[in-house]
């Protein structure tokens, strides 16, 4: 019989207590145990970036972490940013600049960019390109994603 380990994880400021099999991937835990479907799974080998979340504030691939490793840690997913009626300035910028098409990679990109903009409030285009280089987008060709991040940085630094 598989081991079951009790864990206590804070996701988007809510504390969850669950029993998990050690092999359960954090991405599957977030999606299927907690029902937070905004985190997407594109490759399960750490290459596409769709499942990027914040783990104690750091952007990481949730497909390369076991849920059991999140015990005692703080997690943020795209659901923590904004709602359709009250979007985060970054989400607003993506909407205004057409920074998404199918939207499947988008949550991972947003969760990569949120801490990036905290560290680089006035990023150059090259810095943005490099920051999102670990997130594959098949639809946009990235140009409008980069414009979105630029626009977001302006919005956020002017406090709008």
């Amino acid at each position: 019989m598989a081991q079951l380990i009790p864990i206590k994880v804070t996701v988007n400021d809510t504390v969850y207590e669950r029993q998990v099999e050690p092999r359960l991937l954090l991405s599957d835990f977030i999606r299927h145990e907690l029902g937070l479907f905004g985190t997407h799974v594109g490759c399960e080998h750490g290459m596409c970036g769709a499942c990027t979340i914040l783990f104690d504030g750091e952007p990481v691939r949730s497909c390369l972490i076991f849920a059991v490793q999140a015990n005692g840690h703080q997690i943020k997913t795209v659901e923590s940013l904004g709602s359709p009626d009250h979007m985060h300035p970054l989400q607003e910028a993506f909407h205004e600049k057409h920074g998404l098409q199918c939207g499947f990679c988008t949550p991972g990109i947003l969760m990569t960019v949120v801490p990036f903009l905290e560290e680089h409030p006035h990023p150059t285009e090259d810095e943005i390109r490099e920051a999102i280089d670990g997130n594959i987008c098949r639809c946009t060709g990235y140009e409008k994603i980069i414009e979105s991040v630029q626009a977001a940085s302006e919005k956020m630094s002017s406090g709008k």
Partner: peptide
């Protein structure tokens, strides 16, 4: 379609 996609609600 953006808002639901951007907020993880789609």
């Amino acid at each position: 379609e953006d808002k639901h996609l951007l907020t993880g609600r789609a």
